[in-house]
Amino acid sequence: MATLTYRDALNQALREEMQRDPNVFLMGEEVGVYQGAYKVSRGLLEEFGPKRVVDTPIAELGFAGIGVGAAMGGLRPVIEFMTWNFAVLALDQIVNSAAKMLYMSGGQINMPIVFRGPNGAALQLSSQHSQAWESWLAHIPGLKVVAPATPADAKGLLKSAIRDNNPVIVLEGEMLYNLKGDVPDGEHIVPIGRADIKRPGTDVTLVCHSKTLAVAQKAADQLAEQNVSAEVLDLRSIRPLDEAAILESVRKTNRAVVVEEGWPHAGIGAQIVDLIQRDAFDDLDAPVQRVTQADVPMPYNKLLERSAKASPEKVVAAARKVLYLDA
């Protein structure tokens, strides 16, 4: 077991998969000579050369589509977006080309492509650079969407994504790249579609993913001081969603709070609440609560930004509400 940063775990996954399969290549802005805007691709140009580590112009729509075409031609592209905020320019290719190719070709054309990059807010980057896109992407049939929260999951999920014969969206986090954690040695694969209980508990389920894992864990610490045992369930995959794991946890705790970085309207939490009310209605002791980003564009001011984001305090308040502790 080695201790690695999230960044280096992703780097290891890329390196190992590129060593394993010559058809895997990395393409995106600043991935080569500059060593990656966030240094995820550090050293890869030197090891694999410019044929397989391809620097692009700032043209998200174009290079995302070139990636899709390369996958049609039998390669396994990994397309890096400097952030998912910029990937919005490429949504036509992700949605209309990558996600639908297999279906509209009647099953003839596989689409083994990975689109990856940091998602959601960092610090004081203001409205256009702080958006969480998972509910947009997870809406689309034909895509898989993963959002690892730890170095081990980052490595294992990216390796799964690269080996998958379907288009996989990998949502990373700028604020996660320096996070350190234990990563198993050797071949470490995390299957897509499996949630993970990061902290077992009995009184309330905190459903989270990506950066909100840390939020939920801090909330669970605070709740423990209040004699509340919170179970922290990390989704890891947004699509497919591990519905069984969510239901199993809620059937045990009878209460749930869903925490996400995105906005509330039509968010991921809405999908999870739908699942719980439909399939675990009789197990619930309280309506499910959601903690999201405030329903506003992200402000620049530090204090305003902090109050817009999901926080441990908001999660604790929501948990106390489903436990009727303040009634």
Binding site: G62, G65, G67, G69, Q93
Partner: peptide, 17 residues
Amino acid sequence: GGHIPLAAGLAFSSKYK
């Protein structure tokens, strides 16, 4: 116009291979 990048991608795959 959405398929124009795909064409370049197919050509990229030819050259790559």
